[in-house]
Design a protein around this nucleic acid. Sequence first.
DNA 1: AACCAGGACGTGA
DNA 2: TCACGTCATGGT
Length: 213
Amino acid sequence: MEESKILDLYRTLLDFFGYQNWWPVYSDNPFVEISFGAILTQNTSWSNVEKALRNLVENDLLDLEKVSCIQEEKLQEIIRPAGFYKRKSKTLIEFSRKTKDMKKEKVTRDFLLSIKGIGKETADSILLYALNRPYFVVDAYTRRIFSRLGILDKGLSYDEIQKIFEKNLPESINIYKEYHALIVELGKNFCKKKPLCRDCPLFANCKFRIYNV
DNA sequence: AACCAGGACGTGA
DNA sequence: TCACGTCATGGT
């Protein structure tokens, strides 16, 4: 496979979109805000997540201690706009209970995966963006974009894809952060399910471009 | 008015 | 292991 392109594509995307400076944080509690946001954004548009986060802030609930002992039905109403609110409220509560008295250095990937409702992508998002650990985040956009480009086979597992990116990039937390953010930006604006290939910054590199009007 | 969004889990084959 | 149904709101 032509994995050596991975770094070139990063430069192209960075050139086109500019630095994204992810993860967006508006409170003075980045760990909680990023972790909660990562859980809330599962298969959900970010605009809906923002509403849920605003509700949490208004109720002073960007707080592990408070969420760990909140009444579940109350939390459900507060995060309702983010969708899947029953499952997500359980996950937020379990996450809060398990991490509130924990030193952040002890939070591992396996630990996060032991929390029901946190899978690989959410765990890696928390590790990378909330804890500054070098884990490359793989999401649906990553699979779609790089399989269309012709770089990744469909059917590769999460861990295999992650390994390919980490092997072909400098082990730089900032590059991991930016690259994933840029992938999301490309996925939202061009490489959608119905792609807009005409103005795509990766048009020249892509084997797909069937809608290249 | 169907389709989609910064997934994860339980089930059955 | 893996394909498939389920969970849910809000924007286009």
